[in-house]
């Protein structure tokens, strides 16, 4: 790029896209989705809260031929700013289809990179979804073994 243009929107195009067209969100009541595990992070008092809902299943790893548990489907709900909504949407795309072990490792930086960057002060307060995801996985592991597909 030759010269930097002033963007009319404070966020990147990818953030804007995920904010305007969020993926995998749970519309309305959480009963509208059958899930195996739920995790939460944040607090409405702080202005941001995210819930992650996971449908967990097991499959055979084609390489090792061993059984592994993975995120078959994922939904989320978010109360918060554009960056909170976009980052949760991005996370849902990153996590879908991953094994629980892989999903647990998704970091705030990875979400931020996926979105093409976020304003500095937004990064710390609104990229929280991976914590909700970890919370969901923890809740699931404490609950017991996954359902068979």
């Amino acid at each position: 790029m030759s010269n930097e243009k002033i963007k009319p929107f404070a966020y990147t195009e990818i953030v804007k896209d995920h904010f305007l067209n969020p993926r995998n969100f749970l519309m309305g009541d959480e009963k509208n989705f059958t899930y195996d595990a739920k995790g939460t992070v944040g607090n409405p008092v702080c202005g941001d809260q995210m819930n992650m809902y996971l449908k967990i299943s097991s499959r055979k790893n084609p390489e090792t031929n061993e059984s592994e548990t993975y995120i078959k489907d994922i939904k989320w709900k978010t109360y918060g700013c554009a960056s909170a909504i976009a980052s949760t949407s991005a996370l849902s795309e990153l996590a879908k289809g991953k094994t629980l072990e892989e999903a647990e490792k998704i970091s705030a930086k990875e979400i931020c990179d996926f979105l093409g960057g976020l304003p500095e002060h937004k990064f710390h307060c609104s990229v929280l979804g991976h914590e909700a995801l970890k919370d969901a996985i923890k809740n699931h592991q404490e609950k017991g073994s996954p359902k068979t597909p």
């Binding site: 404070a10 904010f19 305007l20 202005g47 918060g80 700013c81 554009a82 909170a84 909504i85």
Partner: peptide, 14 residues
């Protein structure tokens, strides 16, 4: 209620 202001602001802007 339940709808955060900055999100409303940006939707309106768009």
């Amino acid at each position: 209620p339940a709808a955060e202001g900055e999100s409303i602001q940006l939707y309106l802007d768009l």
